[in-house]
Design a protein around this nucleic acid. Sequence first.
DNA 1: TCTGGGGTCCTAGGACCC
DNA 2: TCTGGGGTCCTAGGACCC
Length: 414
Amino acid sequence: MDAATILHADLDAFYASVEQLLDPSLFGKPIAVGGGVVLAASYEAKAFGVYGGMPGRRARELCPHLIFVGGHFREYQRLGDAAMAILDDYTPLVERISIDEAFADVAGTAHLFGPPEVIAATIRRRVREELGLPISVGVARTKHLAKIGSQVAKPDGMVVIDPANELAFLHDLPVELMWGVGPVTKAKLAESGIITIGQLAQTPGRSLERLIGHAAGEKLFALAWNRDPRAIVTDHRARSAGAQSALGRKPFREQVFRPTLRLLADRIASRLRDKSWSGRTITVRVRFADMRAVTRAMTLGAPVSATTTIAEIAEELVRGVRDEHPHERDISLLAISVSHLVPDQAMQFEFSLGGPDDARRPGTRTGAARRQADGAMDKVRTRFGWDAIGYGSVVLEAPKSVPDAFRELAEKQL
DNA sequence: TCTGGGGTCCTAGGACCC
DNA sequence: TCTGGGGTCCTAGGACCC
């Protein structure tokens, strides 16, 4: 049997811990990063039932002494990177999941640094001493179990799962600790009396698949027996790039959605061009006032990355939604996503094609003009910053519901 | 004064092809 | 009496994760 060499390292209540580090008077107090929405809560706040994603008003109700702090987003990025760099010191096999979380496989480096649990303890000590942050680590034979280990270890702990005791450890735990079990799946399982991972493991595969679908049933059943074949993946390629904007409540009209879609297209397109990617499928999402949402998609014959092209297609799709839903007076969110991404080298030959002057075909006159305009804008932004230039009214009408820095942070995870 | 922003993957039905 | 069967691509919706 393989040894337990997979580490899952997860910084505890990361944003909140950074804020407490930056302002020691906040230490030991219930704090929330954010405002309208809680982005992160300290453990003191979590004790009151406050959690990330919760509306700020609800959080205040639960915890009257909750202290809201604005985010120091550049510090999050810096400290998250620094913590992950410590992992890099012990193995090249590091898979970063997000700003504050990563897997690492130390199978090949134990002869240099000692057994996995010693490496894990060293990492925890160094992150604490060098950065001043608490980090929890799970050590196990599989990624899934290592991740569960770090969750169980929180806050500021370490759990090593011996390969001989895997199922004994796993089967007493509640199903919602499993990767892929959210509120809906948890409720479906509970209706069949399945509360623990052990109960899930004893459920016949067929009835499980009837309950939650083929793929999910198969996956969860395998995980419940700790059959997790996933290896560490050090380079992830993005499959889509998107942007969204919550609007509160705005009339579903051209004057509202046009400038917003321009802004979203501009964000996505400049990120795509920055990485030399283009995409063939444009998807829009429109959320109505009551939070019901619809999506509409269009797949093109050739990939695109021009701001104006993405914006025009998105507008067309949103007009279609409006025409199909004439009674929806207000919308609360607009989103665009570009998928079927390909590296630009793969579409170079398209540039040389002639044909009708169609903006969606990169080889045509309009397409070329748009690439030039985008290229000029990208250059100005490189020198003077993103807000230095924009498409027409977009510059003035940018909604600022979330700090731009937080948005940039999310983008970096792409 | 309802509920942010960035992603991944799965399902199900229809079109289309051979 | 009916109308194969497999594969791919696309669209729309939904669950989940950080």
